[in-house]
Structure formats: C-alpha cells, structure tokens
C-alpha cells in the first residue's frame, strides 16, 4: 500500500511535534489535533491514516514526552522515517508500537505529497521507483514492535 509523505527538516523537537501546553489535555485523542502546530498549523486535518513522516537528522529531540510519538500514532501515521532520531523519541516510538525507521538516503529524495511504499518486513522503502534500505532495529526492539509495543509485549510474557 502506498503512503503519502509528509516531509520535515532537521532537529524537529518535541515542542514542535506537540507543544507543552497541550500535555495537560486529558488524553492523546484530544492532543492530536495540535500535532506540528507551529510548523504546519493544518497538519492534523490533512494527514491521513497510512501516511508517513519523513525527516532529516535528529527527529524528536528535546523532552521525554511520549505524547510526541503518541499523537502521530493516534493520527494514523504508519511510520516515521528519518536520517537519525533523538534517543528518547526512538525508544518511546517503538514502545508504543510506532515504527521509527532510520534511513540515510530517502529523506534527500522525497518531499511532502510524494508517494512511498514501506516494507516493514524487509526494512525497505520504495519511492520514485528507487529502493531505499533502512537500518535494522536491534532484535530486542523488533520483538517489542512486532508484538504491538511494550504493553502488548509485557502482557504476553
């Protein structure tokens, strides 16, 4: 299934993904309408389930707020693909079952509105007829992701 790309730049911080004043809203469903408010005010209304976020270096830097990957997942974002991720965002994304894929080459070749196909199993993204390999997750994290996140994984044990 093809996904629509939403492209962002370097050092997208967690305040840009979901600003701190919205963290007091009772749940992620209410927060999600404010995702990327300072970068693209209409984002939440435009993104469709199955779309992917593509960004440059250091995506998700800043605070430890798990609401950052959580609002993206709640909006139906299928995966976040970036050249690199900040540490806490990366762990949080996997733990809530949102695939965070490190891909060095794709971000330089796509823009918002482009189509891309994500193959999670193979860890490959296809866009514009070109295949872009992603870095494999450590086995431990792949297991958590396959089971649908940390809660599902703990409940299985």
């Amino acid at each position: 299934m093809e996904s629509t790309v939403w492209k962002f730049g370097n050092d997208v911080d967690t305040d840009q993904i979901i600003a701190s004043q919205y963290l007091l809203l009772p749940d992620v469903e209410e927060m999600k309408q404010y995702a990327f408010e300072s970068l693209d005010p209409g984002f939440a209304g435009k993104v469709k389930p199955g779309d992917i976020i593509v960004a440059e270096e250091n995506f998700g830097c800043g605070s430890s707020r798990e609401q950052a990957p959580a609002v993206l997942k709640a909006l139906g974002v299928k995966a976040v693909v970036a050249k690199s991720f900040a540490r806490i965002f990366y762990r949080n994304a996997i733990n809530i079952g949102l695939p965070a894929m490190v891909c060095r080459d794709l971000p330089g070749h796509v823009d918002t509105g482009d189509k891309a196909e994500v193959d999670m199993e193979k860890g490959v993204i296809t866009a514009g007829g070109q295949e872009y390999p992603c870095t494999k997750l450590p086995e431990y994290m792949q297991k958590i992701l396959n089971q649908g996140g940390l809660i599902a994984s703990l409940n299985k044990e």
């Binding site: 800043g62 605070s63 430890s64 707020r65 798990e66 540490r87 806490i88 762990r91 949080n92 733990n95 809530i96 996140g149 940390l150 809660i151």
Partner: peptide
Amino acid sequence: FGTDSHTTTYGCVGCFSTGIGYTE
C-alpha cells in the same frame, strides 16, 4: 531513570541517569 529528559543532571555526582517515556 526519570520521566524527564533533563534526568541526565545526576551525572554531576557520577550517577548514570537518563530520561525515559511514561510507558517504560
């Protein structure tokens, strides 16, 4: 470990400390 990114602060006394999310 703490639910805040600035948990790294306690390294000032030689403590390995870092931030994590609320699910972890």
